[in-house]
Simulated scan of single mutants.
Amino acid sequence: MQGSPGDAPNIDRNHLALTVSGVPDERETAWLVDAGLGDGIHEPLPLREGTYRQGPHTYRLRPSEVAPGGWRFDHDPSGSFVGFDFAPGPAEMADFAEKHAWLSAAPESGFVRVCVLQRRDAAGVDTLRARTLNRHGTKEFIESPTDWWTAAADVFGVTPDLFTAEERERLWRQVVAQHEAHASGEPVVSV
């Protein structure tokens, strides 16, 4: 996955793209179906070169320059990453184990540094990043743990009963520290 404009396109096993074919009445078309991108596509994209508009976002599919026979997904410029390339053919979950371990635990991983919830629908993207709730472009600062858990439940379906009281308190301390670090320009670290 290419996170920043300066990053070179690559196949780094950061994301598993799902393609589907053999859909009734569309047997000649394969589709990119991706439920794992919080601010990615809302509906499947036909796996053909082109530009596709979904709500306020525009995406592009084109042949990959780094994966022979593969595809390149270019994200809308407002998205949280630039795009990704994916190779053709089946993949095994074991192919992603090493990268998954790093993304889940390394202090440098964006998934460890900042708590982010994202949800994509036809109107746009909702994001809760540390203490900032962005609902389709309207930002709101979250003042309290009660307000944070209300937003997590109401907007993203992440209810507090999924966590112990200790886990909820720890998560609140983390999002406060992450927000303060971001505001001060300091590196973000887990608490």
Rank of each mutant, 00 (worst) to 15 (best):
T159G: 05
R129L: 13
D161F: 14
K139P: 00
E140R: 14
S144G: 05
R131D: 06
G157N: 03
F141E: 08
E140M: 06
H136P: 00
A152P: 03
F141G: 00
E140S: 11
L133P: 03
D147W: 07
N134P: 00
I142S: 08
D161G: 07
F156H: 03
E143N: 09
A152V: 03
D154E: 15
R131E: 03
R129W: 09
N134H: 03
T150Y: 09
T132L: 06
N134C: 10
A151Y: 02
W149F: 13
T127C: 08
R131Y: 07
R135M: 02
A153K: 11
T146D: 15
R131A: 03
T150K: 14
A153G: 12
L128R: 12
D147Q: 11
T146I: 04
L128G: 10
T150L: 05
N134G: 01
I142T: 06
L133Y: 14
T159P: 01
H136W: 01
V155S: 04
F141K: 10
S144R: 04
A153F: 04
P160W: 10
E143G: 01
H136F: 01
G157S: 06
V155K: 01
A152C: 07
W148E: 10
G137V: 00
F141D: 04
N134S: 14
L128W: 09
F156Y: 06
H136S: 01
V158M: 06
F156V: 07
D154C: 02
F141M: 11
V155T: 12
D154V: 05
A151P: 02
E143P: 00
D147P: 04
D147A: 13
T146S: 15
F141A: 13
K139C: 00
N134A: 12
L128H: 04
G157H: 08
H136V: 00
S144Q: 02
F141Y: 15
D154Q: 10
F156E: 06
A153S: 11
D147E: 14
W148C: 11
W148A: 13
A153D: 12
T138R: 12
T127E: 15
W149M: 12
A151S: 10
R129M: 09
G157Q: 05
S144C: 00
A152N: 05
P145D: 15
R129K: 13
P145V: 03
A151W: 03
D161P: 00
A151K: 13
G137C: 10
L128N: 13
V155N: 04
T150R: 15
P160Y: 11
T132A: 05
E140Q: 14
